[in-house]
Design a protein around this nucleic acid. Structure first.
Length: 454
DNA sequence: TGCGGAACAC
DNA sequence: GTGTTCCGCA
């Protein structure tokens, strides 16, 4: 296991050698064992597979999106990259620095934003990420896809956790998804109380079996509310999306969609936090203990979810040694009074609607991000030994108080540039079906392009 | 600034 | 499979 940089300062680069594999000795076992959840905050346990290299065949090194999430989670890097705007949306404030950090992380001293952005674009097809058009250096996670590729058995449309919209298949359940099953739920929530596990999670709806035949028991998930639309395929998901219906959420999950986790349909949703406090920077702290059952019960013994009240977006939720679920912040979305819940708009879904945000974020997105972070905990490396001065960026905002907050992975033993990574592949069919517009809109031709022969 | 193709590395 | 690198294009 890599040793860790003791400094939270990303600029405190050691003189580690890290040169494209030959002399790069990054260890590859960063994710071999469940990482100490130094990055996680009180929340829901990640499913075990999140830590298991075998869960992603042949994969065990951090992926770029994991890395991005790491950075996003660290206050130290908020001057470099930070959540901003819509849920899951982040802006790379300092592209060069992010690229540099990524290069360090992957032992690619010549990494730059152009290359990094190419890697990010690679996620477009996978629908893990997409670009926020019109905003420089701004991208947006598709957490539902992150979940989907890890939970292929989950029906994104029928799952209360992962309600999704797929504009490319008419809003129906993702074609590559199967109905949510008790087994899948148990897999998702291995520590779900016994009373809420197994087949008891479902009630036979009387109709044919399948996504809409068996429904989740609401008493098992009281926070989901009592309205059927909360857990069955909501018709509203099939409807047009009021804001840029075609492209805003090209790969499915639309956290702002009225039907997705609509609090209007979940009147029982209690006020208070839906999410671990970590994602709500001060003063929007919340307590996991406020989470409705069964999530409050997922807390490790003695962990009330509040860690030193007033903590500002604590980033290292290590209490209990349990993996944590982290959700990106959404300013103003923390407290949901019943009134707020009930008043969540269904039309406007722009940035000024935190309630709508929160209403639709819910557990599904939390899970999504959790998956990402489940593979985190490896921190950032710093080598830079071969980086040219011009590649180096100084002045990364550093919180002098947060020295203990971040332990950056030492790259002194980088072993290779590319080791196997978690597998987030989706079927090519799914990909194609998910992006027809890309296939059609594609105008680039090879004729005018000179093949790069390196 | 952002995009995607292509070849390539691992 | 997941990038990395380079490229031309818009």
């Amino acid at each position: 296991m890599c040793s860790l940089f003791r400094s939270a300062n990303p600029m405190e680069k050691g003189s580690r050698r890290c040169g494209g594999g030959m002399d790069c000795n990054c260890v590859s076992d960063l994710l071999l064992t469940p990482p100490v959840p130094a990055l996680w905050t009180p929340g829901i346990a990640f499913p075990d597979w999140a830590y298991k290299p075998e869960s992603s065949p042949g994969s065990r090194q951090i992926q770029l999106w994991h890395f991005i999430l790491e950075l996003l989670q660290k206050e130290e890097y908020h001057g470099v990259i930070a959540w901003q705007g819509d849920y899951g949306e982040f802006v790379i404030k300092d592209p060069d620095e992010v690229a540099r950090l990524w290069g360090i992380r992957k032992c690619k001293p010549h990494m730059n934003y152009d290359k990094l952005s190419r890697a990010l674009r690679y996620y477009y097809n996978k629908r893990i990420l997409h670009k926020t058009k019109g905003k420089r250096f701004t991208y947006k996670f598709n957490f539902s896809k992150v979940v989907l590729v890890n939970y292929p058995l989950l029906d994104m449309a029928s799952s209360p956790f992962l309600l999704a919209q797929n504009h490319f298949n008419g809003g129906s359940a993702a074609p590559d998804c199967s109905p949510v099953t008790p087994e899948a739920l148990q897999s998702l929530f291995p520590r779900l109380p016994e009373s809420a596990r197994g087949g008891s999670l479902f009630e036979r709806a009387g109709g044919p079996q399948g996504p809409e035949g068996d429904k989740l028991r609401l008493d098992a998930f009281p926070f989901l509310g009592s309205g059927a639309p909360c857990y069955s395929k909501p018709p509203s998901l099939l409807g047009p999306y009021p804001r840029n219906p075609s492209f805003d959420y090209p790969w499915g999950f639309n956290p702002y969609l009225p039907g997705a986790f609509s609090l209007n349909n979940c009147p029982k949703l209690p006020p208070g936090s839906l999410y671990p406090s970590h994602f709500y920077p001060n003063p929007l702290q919340s307590s996991l203990s406020q989470l409705p059952h069964p999530f409050s019960s997922l807390l490790p013994p003695g962990d009330t979810g509040e860690r030193g009240g007033g903590q500002t977006g604590g980033t290292n939720g290590t209490a209990g040694g349990q993996p944590r679920l982290c959700i990106p912040p959404y300013p103003g979305s923390l407290s949901l009074s019943r009134t707020e819940v009930g008043s969540g708009g269904t039309g406007e879904r722009e940035r000024g609607e935190p309630n709508g945000q929160a209403s639709s974020l819910g557990l599904g997105l939390g899970l999504g991000l959790g998956l990402g972070l489940g593979l985190g905990g490896v921190g950032l490396g710093s080598a830079g030994g071969r980086q040219s001065p011009s590649e180096r960026r100084g002045g990364v905002k550093q919180d002098p108080e947060s020295d203990s907050d971040l332990e950056i992975t030492d790259l002194s033993d980088c072993s290779s540039e590319n080791e196997n990574e978690p597998d987030f592949a989706i079927s090519k069919e799914a990909r194609l079906s998910g992006r027809p517009q890309i296939l059609e809109a594609k105008t680039t031709t090879d004729t005018g392009k000179q093949k790069h022969l390196n």
